[in-house]
Write a protein that binds this DNA or RNA. Structure first.
Length: 194
DNA sequence: ACGAAGATGTCCT
DNA sequence: GGACATCTTCGTC
């Protein structure tokens, strides 16, 4: 298990290569992003606790799931100081166990793409909004250390329109299961925006 | 009540 | 690289 009391920016690079398991499916993480809670304009926790984001403010080790674009379930592990809303978003991984189950959930998809992108990773694990609030523990989802498939690189987070100067996305560079970088169309040109 | 903005995915050229 | 589907949440009127 990881030390989930670490700040998200310190924990995130350690999670690359780590093994995320839930309900018989294991993915080796190849891409994650750190969000620094109430100190991070790009974080869901920035506006303070809301009905939708209440699980972000739970204890470290809480699974926070949110609905993205009305379709996709994305998952995070809450970490750091309790109540600050810090978390690491699981963006992509390689399926290493439960492959048959994942193929059923995502028919016709190439193996490398089964859990590529946060929404696809959530689908691979079968997550729904009801999974938000569960705890990482022996009887729930688990996170175990593992060796990254490639050297870990860092850069700006995908799709965020503010605080894009913070290189808080971490990935196994060159791994085919990593999602492509996508710049937010709403970043105002020329503005540094840390 | 209305409109815009998403921590996206997929298909198209 | 760009368009668009999709729908909840939130800000504003």
């Amino acid at each position: 298990m990881f030390d989930l009391t670490l700040p998200s920016v310190d924990l995130a690079p350690l999670l690359v290569g780590g093994l995320l398991t839930d309900r018989g499916v294991t993915v080796q993480l190849t891409e994650v992003e750190a969000y620094a809670g109430s100190e991070d304009p790009a974080a869901h926790a920035w506006a303070g606790p809301r009905p939708r984001t209440k699980d972000l403010f739970g204890p470290p080790g809480t699974l926070y799931c949110y609905l993205s674009h009305g379709l996709h379930i994305c998952g995070n592990v809450v970490c750091g100081v309790p109540g600050r809303g810090s978390a690491v978003l699981f963006r992509a991984g390689r399926v290493v166990a439960g492959m048959e189950l994942v193929r059923e959930r995502r028919p016709g998809v190439a193996d490398a793409a089964l859990a590529r992108g946060p929404g696809n990773l959530g689908r691979a694990l079968g997550w729904t909004l009801a999974d938000s609030g569960r705890m990482f523990a022996a009887d729930g989802p688990t996170l175990e250390p593992g060796e990254p498939s490639r050297p870990v690189s860092s850069g700006p987070r995908v799709g965020v329109s503010v605080a894009h100067g913070r290189p808080w996305r971490f990935w196994a560079d060159g791994d085919p299961t990593v999602s492509g970088y996508r710049r937010s169309p709403r970043i105002v040109p020329g503005r540094h925006d840390w």
